[in-house]
Computed example of a mutant assay.
Amino acid sequence: MPVFMIERRYADDLELSVDEVDGVNRINADEGVEWLYSFLSADKRKTYCLYEAPSAEAIRRAAVRAGLPADVIVEMTAMVRPDGTTAPL
């Protein structure tokens, strides 16, 4: 399944409750999207999230349904390791 990096910008600090995260995960499952993990900026107003999804459009649909921004969605095809080698995702 394709892997995508999503940049999200929030107007306020991001603080999700367990119930909110559960709701996001249920919506994602409905759209065939799996949230792998996210990095949160120091000011808690931007995240970089890694997802598996059938398409960028599936991520956009899930984001709209969850009320989350999805400012930039980029498909990832490989990773670069610290030794300079690459590996497909």
Score class of each variant (00 low, 15 high):
residue 8 R to I: 05
residue 13 D to V: 08
residue 18 V to C: 06
residue 29 A to E: 15
residue 3 V to G: 01
residue 6 I to V: 15
residue 26 R to Q: 09
residue 8 R to E: 05
residue 25 N to G: 06
residue 27 I to E: 08
residue 29 A to P: 06
residue 25 N to Y: 11
residue 32 G to D: 06
residue 6 I to P: 00
residue 6 I to C: 01
residue 14 L to M: 14
residue 18 V to N: 09
residue 7 E to V: 14
residue 16 L to W: 15
residue 20 E to F: 02
residue 13 D to M: 05
residue 4 F to V: 03
residue 9 R to W: 04
residue 18 V to T: 11
residue 23 G to K: 08
residue 32 G to K: 05
residue 22 D to Q: 12
residue 30 D to A: 10
residue 13 D to A: 12
residue 11 A to Y: 06
residue 9 R to C: 04
residue 11 A to V: 07
residue 21 V to R: 11
residue 4 F to R: 02
residue 13 D to E: 13
residue 31 E to M: 07
residue 14 L to H: 12
residue 10 Y to H: 13
residue 11 A to I: 08
residue 25 N to H: 15
residue 15 E to C: 04
residue 19 D to A: 15
residue 3 V to L: 06
residue 9 R to Q: 06
residue 19 D to G: 08
residue 16 L to V: 12
residue 23 G to F: 00
residue 12 D to E: 15
residue 18 V to I: 09
residue 32 G to V: 03
residue 7 E to Y: 04
residue 5 M to S: 07
residue 25 N to A: 15
residue 31 E to D: 05
residue 18 V to H: 13
residue 19 D to H: 07
residue 29 A to Y: 11
residue 6 I to N: 02
residue 24 V to K: 12
residue 10 Y to D: 09
residue 10 Y to F: 15
residue 12 D to Y: 08
residue 23 G to E: 07
residue 32 G to P: 09
residue 12 D to S: 09
residue 5 M to Q: 04
residue 22 D to F: 01
residue 16 L to N: 12
residue 16 L to G: 10
residue 8 R to M: 04
residue 33 V to F: 04
residue 13 D to H: 11
residue 12 D to G: 01
residue 17 S to W: 03
residue 34 E to V: 06
residue 15 E to Y: 08
residue 6 I to W: 03
residue 12 D to Q: 13
residue 5 M to G: 01
residue 10 Y to R: 10
residue 18 V to A: 15
residue 33 V to C: 04
residue 13 D to W: 06
residue 24 V to P: 05
residue 24 V to C: 14
residue 16 L to M: 14
residue 12 D to R: 13
residue 4 F to M: 01
residue 17 S to R: 05
residue 27 I to M: 09
residue 34 E to H: 08
residue 12 D to N: 13
residue 30 D to M: 07
residue 20 E to C: 03
residue 33 V to S: 02
residue 6 I to R: 06
residue 4 F to H: 01
residue 20 E to Y: 01
residue 22 D to P: 03
residue 17 S to F: 03
residue 28 N to D: 15
residue 31 E to A: 07
residue 31 E to T: 05
residue 14 L to K: 12
residue 7 E to N: 08
residue 30 D to C: 02
residue 6 I to M: 10
residue 21 V to F: 10
residue 9 R to A: 07
residue 18 V to G: 05
residue 18 V to W: 09
residue 21 V to G: 00
residue 11 A to E: 09
